[in-house]
Design a binder for these strands. Structure first.
Lengths: 209, 209
DNA sequence: AACCCTATTGATCGAATGATCTATATCTTG
DNA sequence: CAAGATATAGATCATTCGATCAATAGGGTT
């Protein structure tokens, strides 16, 4: 009956009850993001509740089903992950192509080289989520394909880059995040230099200074 | 989220019973490989048994626990995935470096661009399996680090490639398999050309013809 | 054909899981 | 400060899960 001492279990001993519904819902979603990123989408609602310091039944006061929680996780994670002004900035030929690519991949890597994003994207991809295919298709048509045209335009001689070549550049960079957050092996603290060298190698092969 | 059973395969009336234990065990492991590759390591033993056309209890006649089945899956999938003679062939300087790298990545991609391998490797990586870290470490020390020395040796002028540069090359190639089997988006039927161009871009940036 | 070994099944157990429902207690309002 | 509204907790249900075990039946041997 009596509560166990809060020192043992909780890093957050203060159990504030009766939050405003908006705030509680937000707290659940944010907790669910890291929780499912940790253990995968098969994580148990009881474990999620325990991590949040609430009862399992409370979850179902805010979400009808577990699938609904995961939907909210998806929404929270995918939101604003692709900055809408990147296509414009990537094709702004008043700026050297190398500069454009470096700023894009620096910003983009800062956004996606994040534990939660990387793992939930991978979990949902493995689960066959349509969301991933849409995301990749969007990435291809809005970022990578325009980039291909920029390379063609910036090359001093006629070149014929393929989309696979752009995907190769892209994958080599993304792979840093995969190693770090999926396989959890050491990677450079700041991937900026590695990214810059990858971009330079890429441009160099098309004769772009 | 729910992985409905592929009822397409329901037309399997022939129930061959009483196999020799060796064969039955082999059949279970091979079935488990594709099963867990499909649905993830949280797949249920009853679903696995149904797919195999056997009873769930029979599984536990050959394996004491579900974890033991997964161990067998790991063993079956990881076995002979890294050809032991690659290190020697990669450092055989009587052959042009480009040729060595192309043959390696052609062979290696044929081995790993496989549905079961790719997905089980990713599932186990997400689950935090030590196996993945060991594999990547082995890949780094036995293949990629020697490759770095070969590049240094083959370059006409002094160059200073980093391990991150080699990982970038490697990741860009592996990413083809990730797109194909994890995200399940279209990729070239034969990745050989894309790989060749990636290797050529890489070598070109170090001045290696 | 009868026998025996054992591979396989079917029934079942206890724990865990998603979800429901009612009682409780906290905050706000008048 | 009393009272109503409702956020939260606790108990519980119906399945589902991994795992166990006694009963059954396939197939080689004699």
């Amino acid at each position: 009956m009596d509560q166990t001492s809060p020192d043992m279990t909780a890093a957050e001993p203060v159990e504030r009850r009766r939050l405003p519904p908006e705030e509680r819902r937000r707290q659940i979603v944010e907790g669910a993001v890291t929780f499912f990123a940790d253990v995968g989408l098969d994580g148990k609602t009881r474990d999620l509740a325990k991590r949040l310091g609430i009862t399992q039944s409370l979850l179902f006061n805010y979400f009808a089903t577990k699938a609904e929680i995961i939907e909210a996780v998806y929404a929270h994670v995918y939101i604003d992950r692709l900055s809408p002004d990147w296509p414009a900035r990537l094709t702004d030929r008043t700026v050297p192509l190398r500069t454009r690519m470096l700023t894009f991949y620096t910003e983009y890597s800062q956004l996606i080289f994040e534990y939660e994003w990387m793992r939930i994207f991978m979990f949902s991809g493995l689960a066959g989520a349509e969301l991933n295919r849409r995301y990749l298709h969007h990435m291809g048509s809005v970022i990578l394909h325009p980039l291909l045209e920029e390379i063609r335009a910036a090359a001093p001689q006629p070149v014929d880059p393929q989309m696979e070549d752009i995907w190769n550049l892209h994958g080599g960079i993304v792979y840093i995040g995969i190693r770090r957050h999926i396989y959890q092996v050491p990677t450079p603290d700041d991937p900026a230099q590695a990214i810059a060298r990858a971009v330079d190698r890429f441009l160099h092969s098309y004769g772009v200074a």
